[in-house]
Design a protein around this nucleic acid. Structure first.
Lengths: 107, 107
DNA sequence: CGTGTAAGGAATTCTGACACG
DNA sequence: CGTGTAAGGAATTCTGACACG
């Protein structure tokens, strides 16, 4: 009751901390954004803010880069994955499985 | 599998973000630390880092302050709560309920 | 392509202190 | 007691660019 699991998604971590957490340089992190692999939020004054999910994604990216995978390919794979998930979700929506899974919410 | 729920406890949020999240001024947040209500971690260069749990605690503190509760009393209540939980935990340990609850981990 | 670095400026954070009440 | 503020310095972050490969 009240334990919000969206901690993982909240964008609250500054780039310096992300750098420590991932072992990547700030330069690298910003570059991966340029290549559309990560999408930090911006604070009012323009500072980047990342989520734990972003941190994990960046670690995955770092691993792929070590294997020699180019940012371009990483992006392709990510886009494919996304489409796959969307497709699945659309199917579920059609079948009304969402209600079934979570129980029908009556206001 | 692999979804670490310790997001809530990781100290990664800078004081500026905590201020936005809680509505408290940085001055207030630092003062509550002085009064031993919150315990941020320090980065190598001395910057404070907070967890989501800290943020929630600070929100609770803010609510109590609005009700006129003094930091001194808030601290007392927190210490009492802690002792209560420790007592409970000690009991469980004696009974071996920990293993029962989580299943026996064999390395 | 992916990353390092120096550059200059703007914003952040820190501490210790004075203020008011 | 709890919080605001001005002060001065140190660390952070930002962008655009040049460099190497």
């Amino acid at each position: 009751m009240s334990d919000n699991p969206s901690y993982k998604q909240r964008k609250v971590i500054t780039i310096g901390v992300v750098s420590e957490l991932t072992g990547l340089s700030e330069r690298q992190i910003r570059y991966y954004e340029e290549r559309k692999l990560v999408f930090p939020q911006r604070s009012p004054k323009g500072n980047r803010k990342y989520s734990f999910a972003d941190v994990e994604l960046l670690i995955d990216i770092a691993n792929k880069r070590e294997e020699g995978v180019q940012t371009f390919e990483i992006r392709q794979d990510m886009l494919r994955e996304e489409r796959k998930k969307e497709k699945k979700l659309r199917k579920q929506l059609l079948r009304g499985e969402i209600n079934a899974r979570f129980g029908v919410q009556k206001e």
